[in-house]
Each structure stands twice: as C-alpha cells, then as structure tokens.
Design a protein around this nucleic acid. Sequence first.
RNA 1: GGCCCCGUCGUCUAGCCAGGUCUAGGACACAGGGUUUUCAUCCCUGCAACACGGGUUCGAAUCCCGUCGGGGUCACCA
Length: 536
Amino acid sequence: MIVTRFAPSPTGYLHIGGARTALFCFLAARKGSGKFILRMEDTDQKRNTPTAAQQVMKDLAWLGIMWDEGPEVGGENGPYYQSERLDIYNKYMQQLLDSGRAYYCFDTPEELQIQREKAQQDKRTYTYDRPEVLPDVAAVERAEKEGRPVVVRFAMPGNDIVVQDVVRGGVRFGAAEIGDFIIQKSDGFPTYHFACVVDDELMGVTHILRGQEHLMNTPGHIALQEALGFRRPVYAHMSVTISEGGGKLSKRERGKVLRQAIKEAEGLDHAELAQVGGVSVEEFAGFLNKKNELDGPNITAIAEHIHVHLPEINVVDFLHSGYIPEALVNFVSLLGWNPGDNREIMPIEELIEAFDINRLNKTNSLFDRKKLISFNTEHMRIIAPEKLLEHFKRYLEVVESPIGKADDKTLAHLLKICEGARTLEDVATKSMFLFVDKVEFDEKAVKKVLQKDGVAELMKLTQSALAALETWDAHSLHGAIEKLCEEHQVGMGKVAQPLRVAITGTMVSPPIDESLMLLGKERTLKRIDDTLEFIS
RNA sequence: GGCCCCGUCGUCUAGCCAGGUCUAGGACACAGGGUUUUCAUCCCUGCAACACGGGUUCGAAUCCCGUCGGGGUCACCA
C-alpha cells in the first residue's frame, strides 16, 4: 500500500506551493488506494502560531484535499503534532548517542559563523569539523555550567550517497559535501531532519513527494535512516512553481504591489488605512518604508478597502478573489504534471484516475493567472449548481458582501443568469445593484450612454411601457422591450443600455430582462425617475 | 562562490528514456473576424518554440560533451 504525507510547518497560511505539494501527495495516495497523512511539523517554538495549523487544515479542506490520518481525524500513528512526540524522538536520539552515531556540541553561533566565513573565503563547502574525541557526559555538564548551548549532531558516514529519485534519477552527493548536521536543538527539540525521518518511518510512509528545495537534505535523511535501521521510502523531488518576476512565489509580492498602489494613489489617509489593516500607524509607516512586512490578513484588508487587486499567493487569497477550489486544484495539478494526453479540464476524480507519479516533470513552472481564470470560467460552467452555490455563499461570507444576506433561491438564480462569468467576484459585481439603496452613477457610463441625444425621451417611453406591464417576469419584460424597439425602429441596445445604466449606474449587469425582474417593478420605476431627474 | 537540479511557442506542456511517422501536437495568452441588449461567454482564423556551439549517426528536439541562461541549497527554519 502506498502511504504519502503532507507535513507543513504551521507558521501561517497555506501557500499555493504547499497546496500543490499536498495535492500531489493526495493524488498519489488516492490513485494507489493508499493513505494520505497530514502531520504538523511544529518543532520550531519561535515560529509556530496556534491558529496556523487550524488555518492550514481549513485551506486544505476547502480545496477538497482531505487527509485519511492526522489532526482532527485521528489515526493509529498519532499524535500528529510533532511537538507532542518529543519522548519518541528522545528514544531514537539516545540510541544514536549510545552507538556513537551522534554527539554533543557546544559551539556558539558566533564561533560557527566564523567557520562558515572561512570556508566561504576558501571557496569550499562548509562542513562541521567533527572533534577527534567526542564529548562525554562530563563535558556536557561543564558546557551547561558555562552557559554554552548544547546541541546534538549526527555523525555522517564518510561515503558518497546516491539519492534514487523518481523525478531526477540517481543523484550523487560527495562525502565531503554533507557535514554533521544538528538533530537536536539547544532547547531540546529535534530539528526537522530528525523528526521527519523518525515520523516517516513510524507512520509507514512509503512515498515522499516534496519540492526540489528538499533534495539537498535527502542524503542526510538517508544516512539517518541507515543509522537507525529504518526503511528507505521512495523519493520524488518535484519541480517548483516560481513567480512571474522570477524566484520563488513569495508572500512579499503582495506587500510590494500594495505599497506601489498606495504610492500611486496619493492622498490616501494613512491613519485610516492602518486602522483598516488593524495595525498601528507606526507599523504601517514602517511597512510603507519597507522596514517591515505586514501579515497576510492585514494586507488583504487594506487592499480590499482601497480596491486594489493583489497577486494571490496563499490559498485564502484565491478564495477572496472569487476562484472556486475545483479550478485551482485542476490548474495547480497541471504545473509539473500532465496526464499524457491532451486533457486539461478535469474534475478531481479524473485527476486521481489519471495521476501517475512517473509523469511528474523536472522543469520549474511559472504561475500564469490568466490561465487560471480560464480554468475557473470552465469549472464554474461544469460544476453542479448546488456546489457552485455553496462556493458562492462561502465567498460572499469571507468578503463580507451584503449579497450574502440574500436567500439561496436568489443566489442560485444570480449564478444562473451570470453564466459565463469568470469568477464569483464577477457574479457579485454584476449583482451588486440589487443590494444598494441608491444608484451611484459611473462617470464613464453617464458620458457614454446617458448624455446622448434622445435618451431622455426614449427612457420616458420605456418607463411608461414598463409601468403598463401587468406581469413582471423576464419573459414579459423581454417582450415589452422588443416591442418598444420595433415601434421606434431602434436596436435593442438603444433601449437596453440606458435602462441598464438607470437601474445599475454602470454599463455592466446581467441580461436586462433578468435584471429588471430581480429589481422589481417599484424599484425599477423609481430608479428611472431618479435617472431622468439626474440627466435633465 | 561551492554543491545540486533544469533548459520545446510569451506561459503551461506533449514528444526525449527505447533517434526516422515532427514541414514539432494541445491549452492559455495575444492578433484578426463572427454571434450577442452590456460585461462575460461562445465560434472561426492566424501568430508563435526544439537556448547556443560542437560531436555520434545515413538520420538528432530525442544520445554525448562544452558554453550560456534559469532555479534550488549552503541555519540551533522547515
């Protein structure tokens, strides 16, 4: 049976790159009718936040990447938070210490830094200088008394190590390239390398799919496995997704774009923005001066407040932008993998069926948001309407849209008449006119549509035609407008466009008959009145 | 800088391992045209790539070497 795992360090929101790794692990497990484990690698006491693990799980669940074993769902190999497994690690740590495969060190950060710089000068790889005689327990006590940090290092074997990788083939690492690395920190916690190797063995992980950035760690992990008598899992180091600007997809990008937008907008009230973002004025000023970065939610709040579109980086960002998870998952699955034929738009079941670890490719890929939009458009079209409704409600909730107050029937209807929309945000934008008390006229719309000769006259005629209408449904409305056009020998646009601006204030809305129907007779006639007054 | 990985249209990629069927296929983007009451959708057409230089071979996108370019990694982070 194939067992995979996704092991994030809960330090913030789930990043789109992490989602991709998780997805491939999930697909590999499902395809092999195996097991997908979620494990929280929270061994860094300084960086972990209590809410981050929850958020990561929420994001995974939204994407439909559910784990068979892990936090919340449990399993036979728990606990699934590494911070709760310290005694397990200590047992193996002792084993290594006893057999002389690990040893204590007492170097200060400054001392190590000097060594590193020296190696840099000599243009060689820095590796830790293992002492001839390994420190004993007495030495540990002495070091503690002197207040020196005590860590444990793993004694690497002196041979080359070849990593057999599904994606890369055999990759050889010279013995001189990998030094004795730290497996236990001075706070007593294991490092990632150690905890990861122990847990993968204990949890029976058979296939490790992870980003290429971990390839250099792998020889160390393999050496650890051998010293501990562990099995060796199958490794697959996947290509990574890089940003349009080159380099890793980074959360800094959002800050960069926001800073730029604030600078260009000019005259914005910084104190107000700081308040919207939930940060102090000083913090906000520091952010603008690139002195510090702001947290994801703070940046998102400010951007939404001033209507600036930021590049999506975290999974939640995509939710906020109105993407649906089916599209995101599908799109991301095609970054570094493909089914081998020309299929592209695929629901998750099809992805599972088509998945093959041997078709993972080696080259890094760029994240192209334009293509994502196209995937989103298509998935919004093919998804079951009930599911789309659920996504829509979730979206409206997180962006705190007043549309969220509407009942299911109305929302479903809005989704239906907005068919062809690219994102849920588009649907919301088009529907907004129904949820405002007073129309605000868009400057461009006024100029292009309302300030034309004869508009007022035709609109008055339209108004009386609509007022005379007995049944207020899309069909009758359509008929009435059509009739009006025929009588006055004008195209549909001549009547529909001014009407659209009158009831929405903009040039964009669902089909005019549907829009009028939803608005209702009374409100429609009132808005036409207001418009006539406005243009006279 | 050391080490490691990678290099097919602007982008995601098929083809490469098992050389000929490749005047290199698909998708997105872009350009032009069409449908439509707006936006969007939809339909048609077009543009567009084997990084470069050497080999091996009757024959190279495919195998080998070099150059250049890109990415990763060099923590008591994971």
